[in-house]
Design a protein around this nucleic acid. Sequence first.
DNA 1: TTAGTTAGATTACAAGTGTAATCGTTTTCG
DNA 2: CGAAAACGATTACACTTGTAATCTAACTAA
Lengths: 122, 122
Amino acid sequence: MKEKIAGSEWPVMEVLWEAPNLLASDVIEALGDVDWSDKTVKTLLNRLVKKGLIDYTKEGKSYRYFPLVERAACVKEESKAFVEKVFGGSGAAFLTNMIKNERLSHEEIDELRKLLDEKDGQ
Amino acid sequence: MKEKIAGSEWPVMEVLWEAPNLLASDVIEALGDVDWSDKTVKTLLNRLVKKGLIDYTKEGKSYRYFPLVERAACVKEESKAFVEKVFGGSGAAFLTNMIKNERLSHEEIDELRKLLDEKDGQ
DNA sequence: TTAGTTAGATTACAAGTGTAATCGTTTTCG
DNA sequence: CGAAAACGATTACACTTGTAATCTAACTAA
């Protein structure tokens, strides 16, 4: 079982999922809006490597980082843990709650309905 | 803004939401399946009091604990933080993903469809 | 060649968490 | 009465996380 992605590690993973094989400096740049010290980003990269969630290839004196785990899988795991914690594992209960609380546009609602239809057909 | 409910504190909150005004011993009993030391449960109760998430009334030498925050509100907050972290804040993206991944029964799907219809009507 | 820059490695450090154990006091059972 | 039980209060303690700073080796520009 892979280790968990910590809160502040998520944005870093997102960057690498979006564009694998970045130098630390690229990652730092891509995270410009997050307003962290470059040191912080490097710490996070290190931790992710230690956790076995990303790895790198050497390029001269620097590294190119890439993810070792798929976003979809991580999202799934996180979602599961979350639903487990807050809804006792009932995905349906969770969906119900979300739908009730979320602000959704007509289009979004339509999309979701379609998804449900497809699912029902299976 | 209230403080965050930590992972191991959730089950305790659940118990108190389910049945407010329990003695520590009741909470411990209700958490039988979790297999924690009674000391652990007491620690969690203390922390929740300190966080202002629960309070108690004295009864002889013991306390009766009750929640100060509503489950619905906490669930909402947690959900929001979660969607923020994993889906960049897009509730729709999250719902899409969940529906795709969850195993849902016909009935559940039907329920959700109804919910969407209602929502659309608003 | 030497000082500044740059990359990664190592170290820092407090707050939060998971998971209890110990202490002190009161109550109760024998 | 005296020991055990039951409560809450206090203390423990390692691990994770957020958020860097410092160290060291290499490279680069003057």
